[in-house]
Design a binder for these strands. Structure first.
Length: 490
RNA sequence: GCGCCUCUAGCUCAACGGCAGAGCAACGGACUCUUAAUCCGCAGGUUCUGGGUUCGAAUCCCAGGGGGCGCACCA
C-alpha cells in the first residue's frame, strides 16, 4: 500500500500500480554513460535537425514534459545540468507510459544524440526506465518554490526546483575544496580535534551543554577548535588547519546559524603580519577560483578582494569615524566619559580596552565595507592574543572586514603560560560577575603552553560567510544545506 | 528576547467586511518538433490555530504558532 506520510492529499493515488509493485519494477542500478552537461558541451556544434548515431545513457529528474500525440519532449535534470529527452512512439519502448510520467519522476534513458529541428540538443530515447516515482506532486513548474519556510524546511524541494539554490551549495563545495588544497600546497596538514570539550574555550561565546553518561560528566560542544589546534603546534605540527563545525548558543540572524563552519589554521614561526598576507591570499584566491575574478559584486556593491588589502589600526579608525582620540592606556574614567557621549554605558568590570572596542563597534564597524584589516585590538578583549611588541595595552590581533562584516579573526598567538594564566583569570572574574561568554581557566591548556609554544600565527575564517560573499547570498541559510529551524508543529 | 511585516488548494498567487477563485501541478482525454507547448474535461479548501466583534470574517480585534526583516548578541 502507498504510504501517506502526513495524510495530505498531495500524494498521488498511484492508480496504475501499487507502491510495492512499483518498487519491484525499479532497477537496483542504472548504467549511465554521460552527464547532461557533458553532452551539451560535446555536441554544441550539431546543426538543427542533425542526428548522430552516438548512443548514450542519461539519468535524472524529469522537470518538464510536453506530450504531443505520438511524440514527447521532456527536460531531464541531473546534477551537472539538463538535456532534453525526445521520445517518439515510433522509436521508444513503452511510449504510452512515458507520456504519463509526472514531473519530478526520476528516469534513466538510452538513445542517440540528436538536435531537434527547432535546435534543442536531445537524447532520442529508444529505451527508458523509471528510477523513482514522485509520489508527491511537483510545485509550479515556472515559479518553483519560493516560500522561505518551505524552502528550508523541505530543502530537497528547493534544491530540486531552484537551480540557484543548488549552485550556492556547489560553490560552497568548490570553495572548501580549494581552501583545503591551497593550504595543503603551502605545507599545512589537516587535523581533527574534539567537538566535545570539557571546557568551552577558544572564543567568547555561550556554548551548548551536553552530558556523557558513562563518564557522568558535563561536556560542551566546541565554540572554537583554537586551543586544541595550538596543542597540536606544541606537539610539533608546525602548520595545521581544521575545517569544522562549531556551535554557539546565541541569536540567529541572516548572518548567524547556531552551528557554522570555521576554518582555523596555525602557522609556527609566523606573526599576525604573515597572517594578514595569508588571509588576503586565501580569500582572493577562493574568489578567483569560484567567481573567476578577485573583483566581485556583493548585493549590488562592488568588492575588490585583490591583495593587498588596506590596513588600519582600531584606534586610528575610531579617530577617523568618531573624531575622538582614545587608547586602551587611558584612565577608565576618562574614556568612559568619552564613550558615554556616544551612548555607551559601561559596566564596572570594563577596563579602557573594552571601551575602545565598544567605541569601535558603535562608531566604525557598520561604516566599513572593506576589504580592510582592522588591527591592534586592546589586549583586554583579546585573551588569547600575544601582547603587541611595541605597546603593552594592545594585542597583535586583527579582524578582516569584508562586505561590512567580520570575515576573519587572527592574531600572533599568546605563547607565555604565565601571561595566559593571568588572562584566563581575568576572564574568570568577568564570568563570576555575570558575563556568560567569558572564558574559564583551562589548566590543561596552560600545561601545554608550559611545554613550549613557538611564535605562532593563527587565523579563523568563517566559511559560511565567505561562501555567502562568493555566492552573492544575503542569508547564511542559503549556503547551509539544512539551516537550524524551529520544529514543525502540526 | 523585543519591534515591524507576513501566513489562502500540492506550488505561485487573487479576493481585503458580502457566494473562497485563477494559473501551474495532479487526474481523464485530443494532438508527430515542443521550449512555462496548446486545447477540452475533472477534481482539489480547518483561508496557520484558538477566541472575539459583526446580520455576515480569509478580510477587523485579541492571544498563540511558523517564517522574513530589523534591533540586541555574535562569526
Amino acid at each position: 500500500m502507498e504510504e501517506q506520510v502526513d495524510g495530505s492529499a498531495s500524494v498521488d493515488a498511484d492508480s496504475e500500480m501499487h507502491s510495492d509493485e512499483l518498487g519491484a519494477a525499479i532497477p537496483y542500478r542504472f548504467e549511465r554513460t554521460n552527464e547532461c552537461a557533458e553532452l551539451v558541451a560535446k555536441y554544441s556544434e550539431l546543426a538543427d535537425g542533425e542526428e548522430t548515431e552516438d548512443v548514450v545513457s542519461v539519468a535524472g529528474r524529469l522537470m518538464l514534459l510536453r506530450v504531443q500525440g505520438k511524440v514527447a519532449f521532456g527536460r531531464l535534470v541531473d546534477s551537472s545540468g539538463e538535456i532534453q529527452l525526445f521520445v517518439s512512439a515510433k522509436v521508444a519502448e513503452d511510449f504510452a507510459s512515458f507520456s504519463k510520467l509526472s514531473l519530478g519522476d526520476w528516469v534513466g534513458a538510452k538513445g542517440s544524440v540528436v538536435k531537434t529541428r527547432r535546435g534543442e540538443l536531445s537524447v532520442k530515447v529508444s529505451e527508458w526506465v523509471l528510477l523513482a516515482k514522485a509520489r508527491r506532486s511537483f510545485g509550479d513548474k515556472f515559479h518553483g518554490v519560493s516560500d522561505q519556510d518551505l524552502r528550508f524546511r523541505q530543502r530537497y524541494l528547493d534544491l530540486w526546483a531552484n537551480a540557484d539554490s543548488r549552485s550556492a551549495l556547489q560553490l560552497r563545495s568548490r570553495t572548501i575544496s580549494w581552501l583545503r588544497h591551497s593550504l595543503e600546497s603551502r605545507g599545512f596538514i589537516e587535523v581533527e580535534t574534539p567537538v566535545l570539550h570539557p571546557i568551552a574555550g577558544g572564543a567568547t561565546a555561550k556554548p551548548f551543554v551536553t552530558k556523557h553518561n558513562t563518564l557522568d560528566m558535563e561536556l560542551f560542544l566546541r565554540i572554537a577548535p583554537e586551543l586544541y589546534l595550538k596543542r597540536m603546534v606544541v606537539g610539533g605540527f608546525e602548520k595545521v588547519f581544521e575545517i569544522g563545525r562549531v556551535f554557539r548558543n546565541e541569536g540567529m540572524s541572516p548572518r548567524h546559524n547556531p552551528e557554522f563552519t570555521m576554518l582555523e589554521l596555525y602557522q609556527a614561526y609566523a606573526d599576525y603580519s604573515d597572517a594578514m598576507a595569508l588571509t588576503e591570499e586565501l580569500v582572493s584566491g577562493a574568489a578567483l577560483e569560484t567567481c573567476g575574478s578577485s573583483m566581485i559584486e556583493y548585493q549590488g556593491r562592488e568588492l575588490d578582494l585583490t591583495p593587498p588589502w588596506p590596513r588600519e589600526t582600531m584606534c586610528s579608525l575610531i579617530a577617523k569615524y568618531a573624531g575622538v582620540d582614545v587608547s586602551p592606556a587611558m584612565e577608565v574614567s576618562e574614556i568612559a566619559g568619552i564613550a558615554s557621549k556616544f551612548g555607551i554605558e559601561g559596566e564596572p568590570a570594563w577596563g579602557a580596552g573594552k571601551y575602545v572596542l565598544e567605541l569601535y563597534e558603535k562608531t566604525v564597524e557598520s561604516e566599513l565595507w572593506g576589504p580592510v584589516f582592522v588591527y591592534d585590538f586592546p589586549k583586554e578583549v583579546s585573551p588569547l592574543a600575544r601582547p603587541h611588541r611595541n605597546d603593552p595595552d594592545l594585542a597583535e590581533r586583527f579582524e578582516a572586514i569584508v562586505a561590512g562584516r567580520e570575515l576573519a579573526n587572527a592574531f600572533s598567538e599568546l605563547i607565555d603560560p604565565q601571561d595566559q594564566r593571568r588572562r584566563f583569570e581575568a576572564q574568570a572574574e568577568l564570568k563570576k560577575v555575570g558575563d556568560e561568554e567569558a572564558m574559564s581557566v583551562d589548566e590543561d591548556y596552560l600545561r601545554a603552553l608550559e611545554y613550549g609554544l613557538p611564535p605562532t600565527a593563527g587565523i579563523g575564517i568563517g566559511i559560511d560567510r565567505l561562501v555567502m560573499l562568493l555566492a552573492n547570498q544575503a542569508s547564511i541559510k542559503e549556503v547551509i544545506a539544512f539551516p537550524t529551524l524551529r520544529p514543525e508543529v502540526n
